[in-house]
Simulated assay, not measured.
Amino acid sequence: MTSAISPPPPGIEPGHGDPSVFDPMDDVPDGVPYVGATHFKGGRSAARHVAGLGHRRIAMISGPDHAFCLARAAGYRSVLETAGLPADLELIIRTGLTREDGQAAADKLLARPDRPTAIFTANDLQALGVYQAARDAGLRIPEDLSVVGYDDVPVVAWADPPLTTVHQPLAEMAAAATELALKLGRGEQVPQLGLEIATRLVVRESTASPPQD
Rank of each mutant, 00 (worst) to 15 (best):
R57L: 02
I58R: 00
A59P: 03
M60C: 13
I61G: 10
I61C: 10
G63M: 06
G63E: 04
P64N: 09
H66R: 12
A67D: 12
F68N: 15
F68R: 03
C69R: 06
C69Y: 03
R72S: 11
A73W: 05
A73H: 14
A74G: 15
A74P: 04
G75E: 09
G75R: 06
L80E: 04
L80A: 04
E81H: 12
T82V: 12
A83F: 03
A83M: 07
G84H: 09
L85H: 05
P86A: 11
P86S: 09
A87R: 12
D88R: 12
D88A: 11
D88P: 00
L89R: 13
L91W: 02
L91K: 00
R94L: 09
T95L: 07
G96H: 05
L97P: 04
L97H: 06
T98A: 03
T98E: 11
T98M: 06
E100F: 03
D101L: 00
D101Y: 03
D101A: 11
G102Q: 07
Q103K: 14
Q103A: 14
A104C: 02
A104I: 04
A105M: 08
D107A: 13
L109P: 00
L110R: 06
L110Y: 05
L110M: 02
A111F: 03
A111H: 07
P113N: 12
R115V: 00
R115C: 01
A118E: 10
I119E: 02
I119W: 10
I119D: 04
F120E: 02
F120A: 08
T121V: 08
A122H: 09
A122P: 06
D124F: 14
D124V: 11
Q126P: 07
A127Q: 01
L128A: 07
L128Q: 02
L128I: 09
L128D: 05
G129D: 05
Q132S: 11
A133W: 08
A134G: 10
A137H: 11
A137K: 06
L139F: 10
L139S: 10
R140W: 00
P142G: 03
E143S: 13
D144H: 01
L145C: 06
S146T: 14
V147N: 00
V148G: 12
V148T: 15
G149K: 11
D152V: 11
V153D: 09
V153P: 00
P154V: 10
P154W: 12
P154Q: 11
P154K: 09
V155P: 00
V156I: 15
V156Y: 09
A157C: 02
A159E: 05
D160S: 13
L163H: 08
L163T: 03
T164K: 05
V166M: 05
V166E: 08
V166R: 10
V166K: 07
Q168K: 01
L170H: 08
A171G: 07
A171E: 15
A171D: 13
E172N: 01
M173N: 15
A174N: 07
A175W: 01
A175S: 14
A175H: 14
A176K: 10
A176R: 10
A177C: 12
A177K: 04
A177L: 15
A177D: 12
T178P: 02
T178H: 08
T178K: 02
T178F: 13
E179D: 15
